[in-house]
Amino acid sequence: MFTIIRDLIRYNIEFAIGLAILLLLIGAVILSFFSPYPAADIYVVPPDMPPDAEFWFGTTSRGQDNFWQLVIALRNTFAFGLAVAFLSRILSLVVGLTAGYAGGRVDRVLMAINDSIMVIPHFPILVLFYFVLKDEMNWLMLVLILSALGWSYDARLIRSIAMSLRTRPFTTQSVYSGMSMRKILVEEHLPYVMPIVFATTMNNMIWSIGMEITLSVLGFTDVDTPTMGQIIYWANSHSALISGIWWWVAAPVVAIIVLFIGLFLLSMSMNEYIDPRSRLNRMGS
């Protein structure tokens, strides 16, 4: 595992950059625990100060220090993405491995449901959830909803790998030696799909964080847990751009882009590592 990461850092520049970005952001997350101000407090500093030596990213119209707001939001956003990725990975593993291993009717039924969830547009569903839940729509609720929506694509991917594993000799051997299906899937097949699961984690985080940001900016989430989208929401509701408080908007937008590029680079280089064909193509050029 460590040698793989070391090799990736050494020979895959995308991976190295992605990892560096992610470590930087994780550093910021750790820093957020040392924030001098509680996240929800307002008017703790003079409002509308442009960036300077004291307030690195300026202050907001709500009298908050933009820098500390940002690192705290980053922490919440990160936690959100990880939580959704974790839960939805479990779902996609269960569905993908079962469908791929069992085959036949089980596979057809699971994949029919899987494909349906894949094509149903999520955004109207999410808005509908907010519409009926209103104030009950909190951080945890959104994690659960997005996890329930975001597993289908990767379940299909895992299924295709599980299908090829099923025909390998070691599976047949385990079947004849009387292992239960659960045991075979967990002990024999899981290790093979884990690298893919890691790579899809990054993509899933990009997706769920993107959704969260969109919903936050529209004010469709719990407005009191600061996230990246939340900051833009407050900036918009104070017409920050029109009144020239550009740093209030620029800081979260730049942070989001950096975060996404980091995740994307990691996912891309991991996919490449997993799929030797694309590696061969790189070499050929």
Binding site: I113, D115, S116, I120, L128, F131, V132, L133, E136
Partner: peptide, 22 residues
């Protein structure tokens, strides 16, 4: 498959809209 998507999607819409506390 089309019918299944519509069935699942519309049912989801119905049940989400009926679990509202308001």
């Amino acid at each position: 498959q089309l019918l299944l998507v519509v069935f699942l999607g519309i049912s989801a819409t119905f049940f989400i809209s009926h679990m509202t506390p308001v």
